[in-house]
Write a protein that binds this DNA or RNA. Structure first.
Lengths: 329, 329
DNA sequence: GTGAAAGCGCTAACAG
DNA sequence: CTGTTAGCGCTTTCAC
């Protein structure tokens, strides 16, 4: 395996010169530059990353934490987001090291950090009580969280969930006479807190009363079914689901009961999903990959001391047949 | 940040001695061992991984390739498998570096490998024409693929898909008088080839004729619906789906058409999924995490030159209401 | 049982 | 513009 020294020797130059032109910093003549570049291209020389890292005291790695307790056999958000992260990381010459954590067990993350395996970390979800966040803050490891956290000091990127949910709920409220019911996921998740906030705000502005019609902390099939039953008992004409998982479960339950979404009842979801789309369910669409990419951009900006834009990822509300033509004002 | 030298100085020993007791190889007295271990535990000394890696010429990283063209917004197999990989990797003191690739673009993988960022690679799917596999073979990078490939020289772990599918199909065949239709995914995937093989074998043994009733290469909603239509037109009494994605899509389509699975028609899937379970669909269950873990075990065995067991991950066939009581012989 | 010393392959002053 | 010289923090012979 070729080393810097080999290249230097072959070209009759010093290691430092080679190093400089490869790094593209420092001084060297146009001519040497060409010679070196040509040589390494020809012989396909690749610097030894570990040596670079040891010398610079940087790992070139970004850690990504997968929440392994987040119904990974159903939710695809994390993996899609991860793909966005990978892609953007390559642009900036970082590798992605993944590890897992649960709400109450962050030993793998601790290991990763204390081994100095990463320069920074990306958290793909944010909890109200977030051990990962606390740990990283304490240890002063640069990190960005995907989600919205109250502490403005922590770097974060997020879709304006509250606003999106408010917008959708408002529209739903103004196009129906019958009650609107909302089924939300775990309140340990900040995002669900924000979704609820959005709903309530829309209700407030519309002067609608959602009391008893916003059911939170449902994630099992049983609790979803139960929530639907309760809402139906209150003669809800519209069912709004906190995320795609809930949406799909509701859809399945309605199918079981022979209730047709878009005809017998209106259905919407705060998070889109191909399966929801196939069934023509109105839903808020987020670009998960872009979100991941943005997180990397932000983290790398911090790590490499570059300017970081503060743009927010957008969202799209796809109005589909499930909230279609009927139930109008 | 503490270094080996610091520990050595503090204890009045040499770096080599400390290094030895930490690595647990070489000679040292029981007493020094205790002193050192105690000290590093107390001061929470952590070796610098990059230095270790440079010195030993190993990265301590395992690369994992996520097939980004594999409908990641629907399939959860890869992320669940990845979690199994992560977990097992920790046991063996490896970190997981993920990258993505598509059927025809493996530039990220190339980058990872040529940067010497990983000691070995895990491929989570196997294609008939697999660029990743070809590349890794050429470059002599140790790798294991999750799936079954003809070349026995490549390390692989897989569930006995063909056998499982044969078993399920056989059972379905013997409990019905009406035709059985099968809808399979992309034939670029080796696993789908094996599933088809299993079906056909079952049909052969049962003396059943599946001609025109095994439809392959379907993955879009449109093609799934079309396949169902065709099979229904042949008065199929049982629909077998190649994977969960197809299964769910079929279920959705049946719902749309008001056909009740388990009553009007029998439905089964070659791959299980929580949503399928909720709808009581008969399906083959595989432990994805275990599969990932096994891959790591195998790769690490090769990397660290240890013995590797050759056990195969098992599967479970969950017979549920969707193929229930009716249509019997 | 322990230590000295050379090196892993690169970067980064500093000196010319 | 280029070369020299120290390291980075660890592992690993080889003496003692």
């Amino acid at each position: 395996m070729m080393s810097l020294a080999d290249v230097a020797a072959a070209l009759g130059l010093s290691k430092s010169t080679i190093s400089r032109v490869i790094a593209g910093k420092g001084n060297f003549s146009e001519q040497t530059r060409n010679r070196v570049l040509e040589y390494i291209a020809h012989y396909d020389y690749r610097p030894n990353v570990n040596a670079q890292r040891l010398a610079t005291n940087k790992t070139g790695n970004i850690g990504v934490v997968m929440p392994v307790d987040a119904f990974l056999s159903v939710n695809t958000f994390f993996q899609v987001c991860l793909m966005g992260i990978c892609q953007e990381a390559v642009e900036h010459n970082y590798d992605i090291v993944v590890t897992s954590a649960t709400e109450k067990d962050i030993t793998y993350l601790r290991r990763l950090v204390s081994q100095r395996s990463v320069d920074g970390v990306i958290l793909m979800r944010s909890l109200v009580q977030d051990m990962c966040m606390n740990y990283l803050s304490e240890t002063a490891v640069p990190f960005v969280v995907i989600g919205s956290v109250p502490d403005e000091a922590v770097m974060q990127v997020d879709v304006a969930h509250a606003k999106a949910c408010e917008e959708l709920t408002a529209r739903l409220l103004e196009t129906t006479g019958k009650p609107v019911g909302v089924i939300l996921g775990s309140m340990h998740y900040i995002v669900n807190l924000n979704r609820r906030k959005g709903c309530k705000e829309a209700a407030r502005k519309a002067g609608a009363d959602l009391t008893g019609k916003v059911i939170s902390d449902v994630f099992t099939k049983e609790s979803v079914d139960g929530a639907v039953d309760r809402l139906l008992a209150q003669s809800a004409g519209t069912l709004v689901c906190g995320d795609d998982q809930i949406g799909l479960t509701v859809l399945g339950y309605l199918d079981e009961r022979g209730i047709l979404a878009g005809k017998d009842i209106r259905l919407a979801s705060f998070y889109d999903n191909p399966a929801l789309k196939h069934r023509s369910v109105t839903a808020i669409e987020v670009d998960d990959m872009a979100l991941g990419a943005l997180a990397v951009e932000k983290l790398v900006g911090r790590l490499d001391g570059k300017y970081v834009s503060d743009r927010k990822p957008g969202y799209l509300i796809n109005y589909r047949a499930s909230t279609g033509e009927f139930g109008g004002a």
